[in-house]
């Protein structure tokens, strides 16, 4: 390629990543601002973090959010894995088109529609709104993401090892748990993490399906932001960003190590065969 194109590429990348990251970095930076005003630097301080941990209301909401996200993503991984398996392996059964439609549609469905429809369902069957309805609602959109992740992992799966297990007398059920599941485990982990963050982030579907007293952290942040900018929210955001950054970096290091380990094992196996 010519030099000019590379330069254009460099500009595109710099501009794109600056657009994505500068706002986040600014937010983190100003969370350590002594001053209440966002645009005046009053010196380094962690006082907003202190105030955050005094705020019982927000801590309670954070606890509800974590509980909800953990439950919804666990349920999503169970249902989504089965759904992904069905999509990847059962290529023809009655109603497959409807099934794949119900898997892919939630990925793009506007949240106001999903939220309202679930609310009307819960109301018409007289199911009191609370943690249970929120878990169901979050699962109904998170499981689609898990299904897609698991499906694409299964598509590139070497099925000969499954066949080998079945030739050796394993039932399909046992083969799935002993062979398939350990191989696709990384996909389940990323599916769980993805569901967890999607659930932890949701405002619209949550506000439709939550009951009184079950306000989650995003719902609280949303109503606070509507009223204006507050330094406590900067601090809270920074904590959430830090958790995510640590989590993602750890996950990628673990994954890289596992890959190196596997390559080493493969090399040793190849050497032993010679």
């Amino acid at each position: 390629m010519t030099k000019g194109l590379t330069k254009i590429n460099l500009v595109a990348l710099t501009f794109g990543f600056a657009f994505l990251y500068v706002p986040i970095l600014i937010l983190v930076f100003f969370s350590f601002n002594e001053s209440r005003l966002v645009n005046v630097w009053g010196g380094f301080s962690v006082k907003w973090y202190g105030e955050l941990f005094q705020n019982e209301d927000l801590l309670q909401a954070a606890w509800i959010s974590l509980l909800l996200a953990a439950a919804a993503s666990t349920l999503s991984v169970i249902l989504g894995t089965v759904a992904g398996f069905v999509m990847a392996r059962f290529t023809s059964f009655r109603g497959r088109t409807l099934f794949s439609g119900m898997i892919y549609a939630p990925l793009v469905m506007p949240e106001v529609i999903t939220g309202l429809s679930l609310l009307l369902l819960f109301v018409s069957i007289d199911w009191g709104r609370g943690l249970g309805t929120m878990i169901i609602a979050h699962t109904s959109f998170c499981m689609s993401y898990v299904a897609v992740v698991v499906q694409s992992r299964l598509v590139s799966f070497d099925r000969s090892i499954e066949e080998a297990a079945q030739d050796l007398g394993a039932t399909p059920f046992k083969t799935f748990f002993v062979i398939t599941l350990p191989v696709i485990a990384p996909a389940l982990v990323s599916g769980w993490l993805l569901s967890f963050t999607l659930s932890l982030d949701n405002v619209v579907i949550t506000s439709f399906t939550s009951g009184p007293g079950w306000d989650t952290l995003p719902v609280k942040i949303f109503s606070a932001v509507k009223l204006g900018v507050k330094p406590e929210i900067n601090a809270l955001s920074t904590i959430m960003i830090a958790i995510v950054a640590i989590g993602v970096v750890t996950a990628s290091i673990v994954q890289k190590r596992a890959m190196v380990e596997r390559q080493r094992a493969e090399r040793m196996a190849a050497a032993a065969n010679d």
């Binding site: 937010l27 993490l193 932890l200 405002v203 932001v225 900018v229 955001s237 960003i241």
Partner: peptide, 10 residues
């Protein structure tokens, strides 16, 4: 992976 609400807030 970071909260979209936080990014909007930023």
């Amino acid at each position: 992976w970071t909260s979209f609400l936080i990014r909007v807030y930023a």
